[in-house]
Amino acid sequence: MNLFVLNMLLAIGWCALFADFTLMNLAIGFVMGFAALWVASPLFDGTGYFGRVLRLIRLGGYFLYELVVSSLQVVWDVITPVHKSRPGIIAVPLDVQDPAQIAVLANLISLTPGTLSLDVSDDKSVLYVHGMFVDDPDALRRDIKAGMERKVMEAMQ
């Protein structure tokens, strides 16, 4: 059986045990099921499930950090009388080739305040991004490649 399905069944069982089917209780059940499966991991032959879940959590944490930082930057620019925004469009060369990874990367960039994914080239090698603060296009390009793109590649491979 797929370990993710087993983990979800354990989470649903946790919710049934407490007769509380809320999102928070399901998340707690998922964590408890993950811990139980981790303890029993010698029974499963060389699965990459545990590493993948941890990488997905790391991607989520990185995204939340970027979300808070960029939100504060945009809010500060809006409420202060001097606007420091320098909008621009940059081309980010992509290392990811899988369409699902490109879609996740583009959506995470668009969900972050101050940036918006505009288009992907026909050969899927370049992502065009509109940025609100493009003082240094190379710095923004490096931030996207070394941050979001690398985390997406780690989590989805």
Rank of each mutant, 00 (worst) to 15 (best):
Phe133Glu: 07
Tyr65Phe: 14
Cys15Ala: 15
Thr112Ile: 10
Arg150Met: 13
Asp143His: 12
Arg141His: 07
Ala19Pro: 00
Asn2Ile: 00
Met132Lys: 07
Gln97Tyr: 01
Ser71Ala: 12
Ile79Gly: 06
Thr80Gly: 04
Ser41Trp: 02
Phe63Ala: 05
Val126Cys: 01
Leu140Lys: 08
Leu111Gly: 03
Arg58Pro: 00
Leu6Ser: 06
Asp95Pro: 00
Leu37Trp: 01
Leu54Lys: 13
Leu3Ser: 06
Met148Glu: 00
Asp98Lys: 03
Val31Tyr: 00
Asp45Gly: 05
Asp136Ser: 13
Ala35Cys: 13
Ser121Gly: 10
Met1Arg: 11
Lys84Ser: 09
Asp95Phe: 12
His83Pro: 07
Leu127Ser: 05
Leu118Ile: 11
Pro93Leu: 09
Asp143Thr: 06
Gly33Cys: 02
Phe18Trp: 15
Pro99Thr: 10
Gln73Met: 13
Gly147Lys: 00
Met153Thr: 10
Ala40Met: 15
Ser125Glu: 14
Met156Val: 04
Phe30Thr: 07
Arg55Trp: 06
Glu154His: 12
Arg52Lys: 15
Gly46Phe: 04
Asp20Val: 06
Ile102Ala: 08
Asp136Met: 02
Met32Gln: 04
Leu140Thr: 03
Trp14Ala: 01
Cys15Tyr: 03
Val39Leu: 15
Gly51Trp: 11
Leu64Gly: 12
Arg52Trp: 02
Leu64Met: 14
Phe50Thr: 12
Pro42Val: 07
Met148Tyr: 01
Leu26Arg: 01
Phe44Cys: 04
Asn25Ile: 08
Cys15Asn: 09
Ala100Asn: 08
Leu67Val: 00
Gly29Ile: 03
Phe63Arg: 00
Asp45Ile: 05
Trp14Gly: 00
Leu9Trp: 11
Leu116Ile: 15
Gly88His: 06
Leu56Ser: 09
Phe30Met: 08
Arg52Ser: 12
Val5Trp: 14
Ser110Arg: 04
Gly88Arg: 04
Thr112His: 03
Thr80Tyr: 01
Ala139Gly: 03
Leu54Trp: 12
Ile79Ser: 05
Ala19Arg: 13
Trp76Arg: 15
Val74Leu: 02
His83Met: 11
Tyr65Gly: 07
Asp136Val: 03
Leu72Gly: 14
Asp20Lys: 11
Thr47Trp: 08
Tyr49Ile: 10
Ala11Tyr: 01
Ile79Cys: 09
Gly29Met: 05
Gly61Arg: 06
Ala35Gly: 11
Val120Ala: 02
Gly60Thr: 06
Ser110Val: 11
Asn7Thr: 00
Leu127Asn: 04
Thr115Leu: 05
Gln97Lys: 13
Ile89Cys: 06
Gly51Tyr: 10
Gln73Ser: 12
